[in-house]
């Protein structure tokens, strides 16, 4: 089977500091794949390289056979890759509803419609997405005033609004309470399965990672030091030494 997302020999450095070192990874359609690693390992940078936020120094990224290198984020989204951000990245002064509504407008290419009233569009679709991530009651609130955990759910709703086939979630539960984390993870798994999405996510909570990932890659100093099924990765001596050891390593 050919990979949905194929990454080969990816490099990125910032002023001489190598943040991504010869990373290669293939993602099969429908796979739930976690990228783990200590702080500063290069996980977010890796996501930024895939989604066009950063341009790699070297290497290839292709999605469903199309070369992504050099494409700006807005083109990559349109090919079917959406992401959420580790550091909240929403429209803080718009309402929760509008945050999602605009994403649906953009997905339908209606941002060039100068006549149709924007606020009347996709009301149902927006309500459905908010319901899905558990924000239906907060629809009319100003997004920036939500609790941190709820802003994270909003991140997820915005990403889903782009109707991606590949979803990238950068620490979707960071900063959430244990209850919020459990609920979010359950809903992410349900959504991904129900919609047949492919998921690539980073996460520090090992319970979450081993709870839903089908494959795991471990980044360390910008390099993938192990990649495979959860049990293989869990028992990898190098991984235990650099990462899982310090995290307790239980699943």
């Amino acid at each position: 089977m050919t990979a949905m997302l194929s990454i080969a020999g990816l490099w990125k450095s910032f002023a001489g500091f190598v943040a991504t070192r010869d990373v290669s990874l293939d993602l099969a359609a429908g796979e739930l794949h976690a990228v783990i690693g200590p702080n500063g390992a290069g996980k977010t940078t890796f996501f930024n390289l895939i989604t066009g936020h950063l341009r790699p120094d070297k290497g290839a990224v292709s999605f469903e056979g199309r070369d992504l290198i050099g494409l700006p984020p807005q083109k990559i989204v349109r090919l079917g890759i959406a992401r959420s951000f580790q550091r909240i990245n929403i429209y803080p002064r718009l309402t929760v509803f509008e945050n999602v509504q605009v994403a649906l407008i953009a997905h339908e290419g209606q941002q060039w419609n100068l006549f149709r009233p924007g606020r009347s569009l996709h009301r149902e679709g927006t309500a459905e997405l908010l319901e899905l991530v558990g924000l239906a009651a907060e629809a009319a609130e100003t997004a920036g005033e939500l609790s941190y955990g709820k802003q994270k759910q909003l991140e997820l709703a915005i990403a889903l609004a782009s109707q991606p086939r590949l979803l990238l979630l950068d620490e979707p539960t960071a900063g959430m309470s244990p209850q919020e984390t459990a609920a979010t993870i359950a809903s992410v798994r349900d959504i991904v399965k129900a919609r047949g999405l492919t998921l690539l996510f980073t996460e520090h909570d090992m319970a979450v990672v081993f709870g839903i990932a089908e494959r795991i890659s471990v980044l360390h100093h910008g390099e993938i030091i192990a990649s495979g099924e959860p049990d293989t990765v869990r028992n990898d001596a190098e991984v235990r030494r650099v990462y899982l050891g310090e995290h307790g390593g239980h699943g």
Partner: peptide
């Protein structure tokens, strides 16, 4: 007040995010 106008507001509020929804 069109879809265009609402999207402009999103661009004003957070251009990076607007790029990542395909704008």
């Amino acid at each position: 007040h069109s879809a265009f106008g609402l999207t402009l507001v999103a661009v004003r509020e957070n251009a990076v995010r607007a790029g990542f929804i395909g704008v």
